[in-house]
Design a protein around this nucleic acid. Sequence first.
DNA 1: TATTTAAGTTAACGGTGTTAACATTGGCAT
DNA 2: ATGCCAATGTTAACACCGTTAACTTAAATA
Lengths: 207, 207
Amino acid sequence: MARTAYHHGDLQQQAHQQALDIVREHGDSAISLRALARQLGVSAPALYRHFADRESLLAELAISGFEWLRQRLLSVDQSDSRQALIGIGLAYVAFAQQEPNLYRLMFGGRVLPQGVHPRLDEAGKNAFQVLEDTIASASECGYLKPMPLALMTATAWSLVHGLSLLTIDGHLPAADTESHLAEGVTSLLLDGAIATPPNSKNNEDTP
Amino acid sequence: MARTAYHHGDLQQQAHQQALDIVREHGDSAISLRALARQLGVSAPALYRHFADRESLLAELAISGFEWLRQRLLSVDQSDSRQALIGIGLAYVAFAQQEPNLYRLMFGGRVLPQGVHPRLDEAGKNAFQVLEDTIASASECGYLKPMPLALMTATAWSLVHGLSLLTIDGHLPAADTESHLAEGVTSLLLDGAIATPPNSKNNEDTP
DNA sequence: TATTTAAGTTAACGGTGTTAACATTGGCAT
DNA sequence: ATGCCAATGTTAACACCGTTAACTTAAATA
């Protein structure tokens, strides 16, 4: 449908873009369908021709965020196992720090519960898949200890997810040393925290 | 002021308790000052005698949550360094899993930004202090590698925070094996993930 | 060309947080 | 004991919000 005095012509995409800008700048709570329609020179119910409700619009924005994150993670160099693991972690945390409001929308949990928007769930899984593949590759190369893959992926994801949220919420200090912190944190996971070498009896799979 | 037909007598505390119940059951987005006043048999503006605004009420609830979490962490056995560290991690994640809505309110970030409610910030710091003290104790005992204390605390907190949020948001599977997952994750941090012993040259403080 | 259908409109419902102006009353100083 | 004051309630109103119903425009299609 072409542009007219009556028909906007390109709502949906323009609404998506404008809403994405608002979320990136002011967070998802700043999204108001009425205000959004006002900015686009259109009546509020017009948006309902393109989005089922406010939450569905937010889900679309989160999908964009996950696809964006996935591209960032895909562009990490995968030649060396250790550098790939640390690089993925750094890229993940960097994305969250550069797009804190978008990241919070993607992983808010409360505003966008899982199992409601299937395409959103899929987009999230696709992004996570990159991290999972990197870990699986490092495991197959023998770089990692023998352990269930799910344990390592859960640990790595928890670490970068937690670090991302704590830093963007201001619970961890030092904005300038953030990347150093992220590198130290991921390295610490790989090397272990305890002083005694893990040779004696802390492998629970081979007692 | 005593109870009367006109004066409620115990608003503030009853509002706090009722709101806390609602948040625990349905999340912070279910808190409506008008509905809350309705349930307490009082007019909506009456609540403004006791809470500056909706956000301040939520901040009070979050403070309760942090004090609760702190008590849970304080009751962890501290005799053995390793068991103390793992126990703190398990208690932390268990709290988040048992009170997911309250935990999300405490660490939402978007609904309760840091630096706005000083008493809330202090309550959060007090809870975090328990984890920090446990790590400092283990470090002084020589159980941990020599490293900046801030690095270890940031890593540990990131790990349990991320694991908490990922599980309560349904991003990690298996509700029944959650505690096993939490234990595996924390152990993995202590022992390290890589197969080769960390003897060669991965201490960045002593090159 | 006639008709269906996609995409916009206005009007309205019920809900929200919040403020202003006013009413009640317990507790304290005289 | 009494009179005042501050604490704590009240109602009315403002400016929003998401959402739906009923209607209009105009593009696409048969």
